[in-house]
Amino acid sequence: MARNVLGGELQSCSTDPMTGFTRNGCCETDAQDVGVHTVCTRVTAEFLAFSAGAGNDLSTPRPEYGFAGLQPGDQWCLCADRWVEAHAAGAAPPVVLEATHARTLEWVDLADLREHAVDPR
């Protein structure tokens, strides 16, 4: 059973839009997930602009990949290193701790995640 950063059972991040490295709604990870998509975020317009500027446009629909594009307020499993970059730039999106995989703590201090914590939906 996968664990979250609080030590409990990993909760679902989002099924609408469907997220997660394996697209099962959870921020689970495995050896094939080189991006480490473990941080359950609630994206903001500021973060989406930051991400696009960093070369990862998450707002534009990509129907060829079954991706409708994210809107502010959507929950999404974000790469741990991208969250760290956004945090350093002052653009980190809020985090749902219960749905953020424990492996995130290899990149991010729990205190930083708690500063950006929001209640699960």
Rank of each mutant, 00 (worst) to 15 (best):
V5F: 05
G20E: 07
P94W: 05
T60Y: 07
G25V: 03
S12H: 00
G69P: 07
R23Q: 12
E28T: 08
D109R: 15
L6E: 07
F50T: 08
E106Q: 10
M18P: 13
A99Q: 03
A49M: 07
G53P: 08
M18H: 01
V96T: 10
G7S: 05
H116K: 09
L70E: 11
A49Q: 10
N24T: 11
A92C: 00
G90A: 06
E46M: 08
V96D: 04
L70R: 12
A52V: 00
L110I: 08
G90I: 03
S59K: 02
W76Q: 06
C79E: 12
Q71W: 00
H37C: 00
Q11V: 07
E98K: 01
T104P: 04
D30H: 09
H87S: 15
T15G: 11
H101N: 15
G35F: 12
N56T: 14
F50I: 08
G7V: 04
D81G: 02
T15H: 12
G8E: 07
Q11T: 02
N24S: 13
R121E: 09
L58W: 01
A45R: 15
V34C: 13
E46Y: 01
G25K: 06
P63Y: 08
F67R: 12
R103E: 14
A117E: 05
Q71E: 15
A68L: 13
F47Q: 11
L58H: 01
A86V: 05
M1L: 14
E85L: 14
T19G: 01
E106F: 04
G20C: 06
F47S: 12
A80W: 00
E115I: 04
G69T: 02
L113R: 11
F47G: 13
C26N: 10
G35W: 13
P63M: 11
W83Q: 08
V95F: 06
D74M: 03
F47M: 09
P120T: 02
H37S: 01
D33N: 15
P17S: 05
T29N: 11
L110N: 07
N24R: 15
A45I: 00
T22D: 14
A68F: 00
E28F: 00
A86H: 05
D57T: 02
A102G: 02
D81S: 15
L113E: 05
D16L: 10
A68M: 12
P94D: 04
Q75H: 15
L10C: 12
C77Q: 08
S12C: 12
V43E: 07
P61Q: 10
G90S: 05
H37Q: 10
R23A: 08
A86K: 09
C13A: 00
D112G: 10
G20T: 00
A88G: 09
D112V: 06
S12N: 02
T41Q: 04
R121G: 11
T44G: 12
E28P: 03
V5T: 05
